[in-house]
Design a protein around this nucleic acid. Structure first.
Lengths: 205, 205
DNA sequence: GAGCTAACGTGGACAGTGTCCACTAAGCGC
DNA sequence: GCGCTTAGTGGACACTGTCCACGTTAGCTC
């Protein structure tokens, strides 16, 4: 039942973002009276928080799937593959934001009282940030990224991609035509590439 | 009266973000019955849109003020001053997002039906994007930024700063302690600096 | 000045929302 | 069987956005 409410909330969030996950509607979908939800969640915010986590997990899944499509395996020292996986991490993030704007917005709409968990850890994990870190670590392994520049570099990269996703999805650029979106994406990803890669020519993506 | 409603809406937005600008409360502040608002706005979204524009203008004002504090004037060829103004543009953006999280979020919460105006123009104007463009143009003038790299570079820069502002203000990094925030900000601004400035050593900010 | 008009604000209503309270039914250990 | 927890029900309340019909006032035309 808890699961059902979260699933219903996810459906609502997909269609209309975090504001659309309304408690009464979720219970209606599950086929139960509104107050039943209060057996499983303290209030609407707690339901929303669960839905947000689920949405974030969706984003993580999407990224993992996209990375897995790149030939080769992590740790085999293939620079092309490492670069490809890094690119896949960024592209998957942007594609998810584009194709599932409601879920993307919801993933980052955790209510104030419910703290984000992901940030503290430094090791790689299934979260979007964890996967970004894994990709960057691999770039260092294959020599595409100076080890000295690695520390903390995930934050500028994350900021840049996230900023683009937000500006394109909900921000002032949301009305931009497809052509402009492509150009913007190329420019932004290129900017990140320049900022990351060592002087050596990057393998083309 | 229209002004008064917008002002009231701004106050609400400052305290609680876009969701807090509720029509009835705004009319209550102005001291009038809820329906009076419908003489001036078609619906709540139109009021919110006006408040969003006002919030965006506040952001632009803040940036302009911060830039004006840098000694020297635009176009005098002083590289240090040009760099300082560019830094001021970014810092003002981040400071506004930090000190006025409600207004910052509201500035970017324009309802879907009301299109953003600012994006099309390429010339500098009072909008945040316009001021960023002016700063970048000046970097080119004084030789800190290759003219060939100028085209469209405002979007990666905007994305990066905006992404950081969002992640720190409403996103997963919002609970980060002051020390971490400083470090993150330094890293991100440094990343932008590297991506912008030509090989020449940058004047320290 | 008389009378019309348009703008502005009021009062009352309605549906929809989150949330509280008291209540009923089912399962389970003693 | 008794008492307990757990899950769901029904009814209420305050609050929201919004619609409708109604006064009230300022400004214009004749």
């Amino acid at each position: 039942m808890r699961e059902g409410l979260i699933a219903a909330g996810l459906e609502l969030a997909r269609a209309g973002g975090p504001d659309a996950v309304v408690l009464r509607e979720a219970t209606r979908i599950v086929g139960v009276v509104p107050n039943a939800a209060y057996r499983h969640f303290a209030d609407r915010d707690e339901l929303l928080a669960a839905v947000c986590e689920a949405a974030m997990a969706r984003l993580g899944d999407r990224m993992a799937a996209e990375v897995a499509r790149v030939p080769g395996e992590r740790g085999d020292g293939d620079a092309d593959a490492a670069f490809g996986r890094m690119a896949a991490v960024g592209m998957a993030y942007l594609e998810f934001a584009r194709e599932e704007p409601g879920l993307f917005a919801t993933a980052y709409a955790l209510p104030d009282q419910h703290p984000y968990a992901v940030v503290g850890a430094t090791g790689p994990d299934a979260s979007p940030l964890g996967q970004l870190r894994a990709g960057l670590d691999e770039l260092v392994e294959v020599g595409l990224l100076d080890a000295g520049r690695r520390t903390g570099i995930e934050f500028p990269v994350w900021s840049t991609v996230h900023g683009l996703a937000v500006l394109l999805g909900q921000g002032p650029l949301r009305a931009a035509p497809e052509e402009d979106r492509r150009m913007l994406t190329d420019r932004v990803l290129g900017f990140i590439g320049e900022g990351l890669l060592t002087a050596v020519a990057a393998p083309d993506a």
